[in-house]
Design a protein around this nucleic acid. Sequence first.
DNA 1: AAGATAGTGTAACATAGGTTACTAATATTG
DNA 2: CAATATTAGTAACCTATGTTACACTATCTT
Lengths: 210, 210
Amino acid sequence: MLTDLQFVYGSLLEASLLQEINQVGTYRQIQAGTEIIRPGEYIKSIPLLISGAIKVIREYDDGEELLLYYVEEGNTCSMSMACCTEQKRSTIKAVAEVDTLFIVIPNQKIEEWIGRYPRWRSFIFASYQNRLEEMLSSLEKVAFERLDERLIEHLKEKGRINGENSIHQTHKEIADELHSSRVVISRLLKKLENLGQIKLHRNYIELTDL
Amino acid sequence: MLTDLQFVYGSLLEASLLQEINQVGTYRQIQAGTEIIRPGEYIKSIPLLISGAIKVIREYDDGEELLLYYVEEGNTCSMSMACCTEQKRSTIKAVAEVDTLFIVIPNQKIEEWIGRYPRWRSFIFASYQNRLEEMLSSLEKVAFERLDERLIEHLKEKGRINGENSIHQTHKEIADELHSSRVVISRLLKKLENLGQIKLHRNYIELTDL
DNA sequence: AAGATAGTGTAACATAGGTTACTAATATTG
DNA sequence: CAATATTAGTAACCTATGTTACACTATCTT
């Protein structure tokens, strides 16, 4: 664990802090698709990502959902931090997008370290700022971009995170993440296929020229 | 200034910190409509709101804009904090929505106090969390609500912030904040008037039954 | 007062995207 | 293997919202 920590967080955090993380943190290795946080749960820890990616989404009663952001290597999730420090129930769902490795930090340490380690403090602040910026970027996408553009970005982003040039999702699943409907997504995907940018298959999509 | 500080922040922050704020802070009183921050500027301080409200919006080259959130009494603007600590140029515009009173804190104090005053630390964190939640709520509105619902909320919110049951904005200005077009807003407003919920006048709108 | 400008009302039309309904292909299960 | 469920393709239609164009009025300027 320490080696991983040093590799990913060595340039970011104090060496002595890494030691301490090594002592109090728990290593967790989870498979793609595993739910890490469900809405309504109390969150008592935050994750430090070593590798992989966690997808953070909002879910609603009517089954609707909204993709908020991805947490990747070298980052943590400030939404869960918010919940931690305020002892509130989670309003979000977090799912491993790919096989993911992270270290869990119990919440009483978070505050303690902020007082003791300047670099931890900067890290936590930077993380809040990153989230704010990502939320802003999501907001702009939803507000200004048309669905076809958002779809293309979705495909690229999924491909990037999965490190492949294909997407293993059904049209229905894509529609849910972009909170659109299956028929509309099928229609737009077919258009992209006709333009030669992708190739459609059952359960997966090849990105041939995106 | 100290009296105001104690009144608004007395229950939130340490008494000794209030003293210190009183020494290093600058009192600023500005009129409704004044621009406080323009995109591209460097931000070297953060505001602590005493009274009034500051509207924070994003502006784009094509003249489009997007309302992000309001900063009100007892709050600060974490977007500017983000800019402060990272020495980046502002990507947002801040305008006084009504006559506003606030205290300006120079940025080197922000970090210093985080180390020294636990309650300041909590305040700063809470403020980040508030912004995240407000951004989330904006995102949900843009993503899920129809324009007529968003328009009604806009009218109510403006009315609340201005402490009146009328809105002093032209249809064009409303359209810009909701990034819609004047014609569409006029149409929807007329519908609301026909429902007896508002009364339209030149340059202002009465909220009769909203 | 004449003209210019800004704010509003309204009609006609365009389009992105949502909805419903049906078909066909593929996968899963008993 | 038959039956069923999942996934995808496509057509027809609807609606919210955007666009263009023009008329009318209130306000400001000179």
